[in-house]
């Protein structure tokens, strides 16, 4: 079992904070598959194969009191030694190293690095078995948390104005079918503009265009970026995706034409109004699409009181 490459003393503060903040119980697998003392090793071998696990805690009938653990190594030795029909009790490992559910994750990481075991049973305060933790559990939990943090950092990156006259620019990454975050980019754009005291009608038009284009990226594209640019007299929203491309742009612009499937419709989208609606609220609207390559939709909305060129 390879070690988890995290220095638990000198890693970045965020990571240290994370491995102390997360408790073993937040990360462990709670549905523990157990066997009893009298269970034959052969049966445990089958359980491992069927469930795709490499260690089975041996407990009382209720699965609470822990007596030992049978690992893949024990099974291999039993096959070698010809005692695979013996009950678990005879050969299980009894010198167990266990974790407590309230311990910080940092303990689990250093245990995995320090001991040669691939998994640790987790007990609660009453010494009852409540879970099992493997390096896989830890890696998944850390990945999820680190991803969340990276996402926050990405949102905070503000690209400096590159064109003369550009007052603000934001680039949002939008993923296919990511309904959980759907609308976040448009909400961000709306918030940014609200600080500028734009008139409500224009603000609404910009928000609708941004939202429609964002939803299009989520529902129809392979993912891409939504870029927002604010200039003195206009707002430009550009949705650029990595595919699949629109075979017939004219048809896609027809109201009611949609390629959305049932479950997307069940979410309230895919009525075939997205592109026409985005166009309706825009002063300039262009679609550039190539099948197999991708689509770029550009919507421009003039700001009132400014003579647009």
């Amino acid at each position: 079992m390879s070690t988890i490459p995290i220095n638990t003393q000198e890693s970045p503060p965020f990571l240290l904070d994370l491995i102390y903040r997360l408790k073993v119980k937040d990360v462990m697998t709670k549905e523990v598959i157990t066997a009893q003392r009298e269970t034959p090793l052969r049966q445990i071998q089958y359980i491992m194969k069927e469930k795709g696990i490499t260690g089975v805690p041996i407990t009382d009938d209720e699965g609470k009191r822990l007596f030992g653990i049978v690992s893949m190594d024990d099974i291999i030795r039993a096959l070698d030694g010809g005692y695979i029909q013996d009950p678990a009790e005879r050969w299980m490992s009894r010198n167990l190293i266990v974790l407590e559910d309230d311990m910080p994750l940092q303990f689990a990481i250093s245990y995995l690095d320090k001991f040669r075991y691939g998994r640790f049973p987790v007990l609660n305060k009453d010494r009852e078995l409540v879970g099992i933790i493997t390096s896989r559990d830890i890696i998944i939990a850390l990945l999820v948390e680190v991803n969340k943090e990276v996402e926050k950092l990405e949102q905070r990156i503000v690209q400096p104005p590159s064109k003369p006259g550009e007052e603000a620019r934001r680039i949002y990454h939008v993923r296919k079918y990511d309904f959980e975050n759907a609308g976040k980019a448009s909400a961000g754009i709306k918030k940014l503009l609200m600080e500028r005291n734009l008139d409500p009608k224009t603000l609404r038009r910009i928000s609708v265009a941004a939202y429609e284009l964002e939803m299009n990226l989520i529902v129809h594209s392979e993912g891409g970026t939504l870029t927002f640019r604010l200039e003195k007299d206009r707002v430009e929203i550009e949705a650029k995706d990595r595919g699949p491309g629109i075979p017939d742009v004219e048809q896609a612009m027809e109201e009611g034409f949609s390629t959305a499937n049932e479950w997307i419709r069940s979410l309230g989208f895919g009525a075939g109004m997205g592109l026409p609606n985005a166009k309706r609220v825009s002063n300039e609207f262009t679609i550039d699409s190539k099948v197999g390559e991708g689509t770029t939709v550009r919507a421009v909305i003039y700001l009132p009181g400014q003579s647009a060129s």
Partner: peptide, 17 residues
């Protein structure tokens, strides 16, 4: 007025005011 009970309803409400 809707029978759709997902987050997108609230996001839409926010966008359209």
């Amino acid at each position: 007025v809707t029978s759709l009970n997902s987050e997108q309803v609230i996001r839409t409400a926010d966008i359209v005011g």
